[in-house]
Design a protein around this nucleic acid. Structure first.
Length: 472
RNA sequence: GGCGCGGUAGCCAAGUGGUAAGGCACGGGUCUGCAAAACCUGUAUUCACCGGUUCGAAUCCGGUCCGCGCCUCCA
C-alpha cells in the first residue's frame, strides 16, 4: 500500500510520513484559542489534519494525535474580563462550542487535548532551562524574554532573514510595553502580571504572570510526544513567528531536533481575501447551518481544494458540494438495496475499486485528485448497477469498500433529517394525488403549482409521492 | 522591499515532458399524464502573455503582466 507523503515546510519537499519508532506517528497540531467561535478557515486546517491522520492510519501506522487548547492569552483574558466571567468558565464555554463543531464536522478527537492553564509548571520548567542556558533573560518588570540572537538556527523554517522590525510596513516603532526587550525580535516566554489581567496570574520564580503563547506548544508537545517527534502542523500563518519560536525554544532547551516534519495548510479565502478575525469577514459553522447546509457539505467544500492551494470559499461552492454529496448518498442507497438486508461483514483490508482514491490521498493529500478518482469509480458502479446483473455479494463487497472510502474522507452520509411540511401544504399535495388518480390533470397541475409556490416540490413515485423542501 | 503560493472550460479544480481527470452548472436523451428525482450522453485543438529548449511542453528555461499569503495577534 502506498505510503503517505506530505509537503514538509522545513525541507520544502514532499516527504514520507514515518514513525520514528516504526509504529506510531506522533502528531502535534496547534489548536484553537478559545475566546469565540472557530471560523470555517480554522476548520479547513483541522479537517486537513483530520484527513491526514485518517490516511496515516489507513496506511497501517498508528497515530498519537495531540492538539492543544489555548485557554490563556491576551484575548481570552480581555474578553472574559469584559464579560465579567472567570477565565475558566469563559474558556470552558468556548471549548465546549469548539468540541460540538468538531463533532458535527466528524473530526476524530485528538488522543490528548492539553490546555495551557493546566500545564503552567511544565512551562515554567522550560523557561528555567532556557535561562540556565542563557537563551532567555528576565526583564525589570518580571517578564522573561527569549534571546533570539542566541539561537543560530533562528529563521531556518520561515526563511525570513531580517528579524528586525524595520520593514516597509512602517511598524518599526516598538509599542510602549515592549521597551523591556533587548531586541525587537525577542519574544516573551513569561508575561508579568498587569493590572488589566485581573486575577489571571500564576506564581513563578519571576513573580506573578502568565506564559507566553509560543511556550505552551513547545512544553506540551514535548511532554506528550517526546523532545523529538514526528510531525508538527498548523495553518501557514503560524509558520512565522509561532513555529519558528517553538523551534527556538525547544531545540535550545533540549539540544535535540524538535519536529521531524512540518505540515502547513494554506488559508481559506473569502472573496479572494484571507478570512480572519481582524478582517471581520469570517463565517462560522453556525452561519453555514443557518443557510441550510449540513456540516458534511462544509467538510466537502473544505476538502475540495489541495491543502497547499488557497481555497476561495463561496456560498455557491456549498451548492456544488451538496449536489456531489447527494450523488454519493444515492450510490450508497443503491448498493445497499442490491446487496440486500444482512450485509456481509466488511472486508476492512481492501479498497476494491476505490484503490486509486486512497492512492491519491496518500500522495501528498491530493484531495481534488482523490475526489476525481472517486467519482470516476462512482460513475462506473452506477452504470454497472443499472445495465449489468450485479450479484448481491458483489454489491456487498463494493458497499463495504465504499463505506471504507467514506470513512477515509470522514464523510458521514446521514440521511437528511426529514422536514415536515406544513399541514396545508400536505393537504394540497394529498388533494393533488387524488386529482391525479382521477386523471384530472388540470386540477393536479394547479395544486402542484400551489405547493411549489409554498416552497415545496412533489416527487411522484409509482405508489405515492414525496414532499421535498425546495432548496433556498 | 524580503520570503512564499498561484493564474487550466460559465464556476470550482486535477494533471510537472507524450498529446487536457473529476465535480457543479448548462444542452440532448431514457423514464414520467406533465414534472421532479435518478441514470445515460454532449460540451477546452487548448492550459495568463512573449520568447527559448525539445521529435514533442499546460508541464522545462528566460522574461512580462496579474492575483493572493507571510514579514504584526491570527488555522
Amino acid at each position: 500500500m502506498t505510503h503517505p507523503t506530505i509537503f514538509d515546510s522545513m525541507t520544502r519537499s514532499v516527504q514520507p510520513v514515518t514513525a520514528a519508532d516504526g509504529r506510531t506517528v506522533g502528531i502535534y497540531c496547534c489548536g484553537p484559542t478559545v475566546y469565540g467561535p472557530a471560523h470555517i478557515g480554522n476548520f479547513r486546517t483541522f479537517i486537513i489534519q483530520d484527513l491526514l491522520r485518517r490516511v496515516i492510519e489507513a496506511s497501517g501506522l498508528q497515530t498519537r494525535h495531540v492538539r492543544n487548547i489555548t485557554d490563556v492569552d491576551d484575548k481570552t483574558i480581555r474578553q472574559s474580563q469584559a464579560e465579567g466571567k472567570s477565565l475558566e468558565s469563559f474558556t470552558r464555554y468556548w471549548t465546549d462550542r469548539f468540541h460540538a463543531d468538531c463533532e458535527a464536522l466528524n473530526l476524530l478527537p485528538p488522543h490528548v487535548e492539553p490546555g495551557a492553564v493546566d500545564h503552567i509548571p511544565l512551562q515554567i520548567e522550560l523557561i528555567e532551562k532556557l535561562i540556565a542556558k542563557d537563551h532567555a533573560y528576565v526583564a525589570d518588570d518580571g517578564s522573561v524574554y527569549y534571546r533570539v540572537s542566541s539561537f543560530a538556527h533562528y529563521g531556518r523554517l520561515s526563511r525570513l532573514q531580517d528579524r528586525e522590525i524595520t520593514t516597509a510596513c512602517g511598524c518599526g516603532t516598538q509599542s510602549d510595553d515592549e521597551y523591556e526587550r533587548d531586541s525587537a525580535a525577542d519574544f516573551a516566554l513569561w508575561k508579568a502580571q498587569k493590572p488589566e489581567d485581573g486575577p489571571n496570574a500564576w506564581p513563578s520564580p519571576w513573580g506573578p504572570g502568565r506564559p507566553g503563547w509560543h511556550l505552551e506548544c513547545s512544553a506540551m508537545s514535548m511532554a506528550y510526544l517526546g523532545e523529538t517527534f514526528d510531525l508538527h502542523s498548523g495553518g501557514v500563518d503560524l509558520l512565522f513567528p509561532h513555529h519558528e519560536n517553538e523551534i527556538a525554544q525547544s531545540e535550545a532547551a533540549t539540544g535535540k531536533p524538535f519536529a521531524r516534519l512540518w505540515f502547513h495548510s494554506t488559508h481559506l479565502l473569502v472573496d479572494g481575501h484571507k478570512m480572519s478575525k481582524s478582517e471581520g469577514n469570517l463565517y462560522t459553522l453556525a452561519d453555514v447551518i443557518d443557510r441550510g447546509y449540513s456540516p458534511m457539505t462544509l467538510r466537502y467544500v473544505l476538502i475540495a481544494g489541495q491543502y497547499r492551494q488557497p481555497l476561495n470559499f463561496t456560498w455557491d461552492s456549498l451548492n456544488a458540494a451538496q449536489s456531489a454529496l447527494r450523488r454519493l448518498q444515492h450510490l450508497h442507497t443503491a448498493l445497499q438495496q442490491r446487496a440486500g438486508e444482512p450485509s456481509v461483514a466488511p472486508s476492512a483490508s481492501d479498497w476494491g475499486p476505490f484503490t486509486p482514491v486512497y492512492e491519491a490521498l496518500a500522495q501528498n493529500l491530493n484531495t481534488p485528485d482523490a475526489l476525481g478518482k472517486w467519482f470516476t469509480v462512482v460513475h462506473e458502479l452506477e452504470r454497472a448497477l443499472k445495465s449489468e446483473s450485479v450479484s448481491a455479494a458483489q454489491a456487498g463487497e463494493w458497499l463495504s469498500a465504499f463505506d471504507r472510502t467514506l470513512t477515509l474522507f470522514g464523510f458521514r452520509l446521514d440521511a437528511e433529517p426529514a422536514v415536515e411540511a406544513p399541514t396545508e401544504v400536505q393537504a394540497w399535495a394529498a388533494a393533488r394525488w387524488d386529482a391525479k388518480q382521477a386523471r384530472d390533470f388540470a386540477q393536479a397541475d394547479a395544486l402542484r403549482q400551489q405547493v411549489e409556490a409554498a416552497g415545496w416540490s412533489i416527487r411522484d413515485a409509482k405508489t405515492g409521492y414525496e414532499l421535498v423542501k425546495t432548496a433556498s
